[in-house]
């Protein structure tokens, strides 16, 4: 395992931020860490990359205990933080040369041009980084993360600010790295990125992992049940008369429901109408990642 996290907990100033995060990631895997804003994704990453100590549970990154062994760990991981800042007065090659020198390995300096080229930046650019667009800075941040030939890449929103072509290019870089055995831990809000890149995902909600597993298996399991969206101006007077019928969430007049394999939708609708459910519209929903994500993280809307 490249990364193994069991029941990770963290409290800050008396407030419980993480309450049981699980994460299991093997070599060459691209792992998508998902969750709403404030769910604890970035905090989880900050513990895993050794920027803060956890309060409980267990975390192992490439065999290192991330907090006490952070210095050794930083030599073999690459990180693109959410806010990737640079010394703006330097040029990109000079900046990467300076970063490479901090690792104390001469051969890294020779890689600067290759890494810049790999992420689509000019390897001999002399313009200061201050003149770079957001997307160019994002690419430079990725080049910095790749500089030390990491065995694990931790990327927080890596395609932020990139145009569609740029996103595709970064996807290709990450896919190529994963084929070479580099693990990629990806934290993002872009479900398209996850669907394209990730073989395994974990969803965090309110500081806790609510689901973890192979993306294909999770989606297949989900598609065994049919999801619908019903519009009902008035809440139903009685409970649904089926054991294999489940209300997932409510959003104003819209109710998200699931019907299991044993129930036929037409029979279900007829019975619901007969029992006083004032259904005005029925829409079939897709069973993709977005649906899975919304159902697991939209606690407030659950009926």
């Amino acid at each position: 395992m490249l990364v193994e996290v069991t029941d990770l907990r963290l409290s800050l100033r008396g407030r419980q931020i993480l309450e049981g995060v699980e994460l299991h990631m093997g070599a060459g895997e691209v792992y998508g860490l998902l969750g709403p804003n404030g769910a604890g994704k970035s905090t989880t990453l900050s513990v895993l990359i050794g920027l803060r100590a956890g309060s409980g549970g267990r975390a192992s990154v490439l065999g290192f205990d991330p907090w006490p062994q952070r210095r050794e760990m930083h030599r073999v991981i690459g990180v693109l933080p959410e806010q990737a800042g640079f010394y703006d007065w330097m040029s990109a090659p000079d900046y990467l040369l300076w970063v490479a020198s901090l690792y104390g390995r001469d051969q890294l300096a020779a890689q600067v041009g290759r890494r810049l080229h790999q992420v689509g930046l000019d390897p001999v650019a002399r313009a200061p980084i201050a003149t770079y667009s957001r997307g160019m800075k994002q690419r430079l941040g990725l080049a910095r993360a790749l500089l030390n030939d990491p065995r694990l890449l931790v990327l927080d929103e890596p395609t932020n600010g990139l145009d569609p072509r740029g996103r595709r290019e970064i996807h290709d870089v990450l896919i190529s790295l994963s084929r070479q055995g580099v693990g990629v831990l990806l934290c993002t809000h872009l479900l398209d990125d996850v669907e394209r890149l990730c073989g395994r995902i974990g969803i965090i909600h309110r500081g806790r992992t609510v689901v973890e597993g192979g993306l294909a298996q999770l989606l297949a399991r989900r598609q065994a049940r049919s999801r619908y969206r019903l519009r009902m101006p008035e809440p139903p007077a009685a409970a649904a008369p089926f054991p294999d019928f489940k209300v997932i969430a409510r959003e104003g007049e819209w109710w998200h429901v699931e019907i299991g394999q044993t129930g036929h939708p037409d029979a279900v609708w007829s019975a619901l109408l007969a029992s006083g459910w004032a259904i005005a519209e029925i829409h079939r929903e897709g069973g993709g990642l977005e649906s899975l994500y919304l159902s697991l993280t939209n606690e407030d809307l659950k009926a």
Partner: peptide, 17 residues
């Protein structure tokens, strides 16, 4: 200042004490 400019995290992530 490094924290405000977003350069502190990369510095802390380098193998530097």
């Amino acid at each position: 200042g490094e924290r405000e400019r977003g350069t502190l995290v990369p510095l802390l992530l380098a193998p530097v004490t």
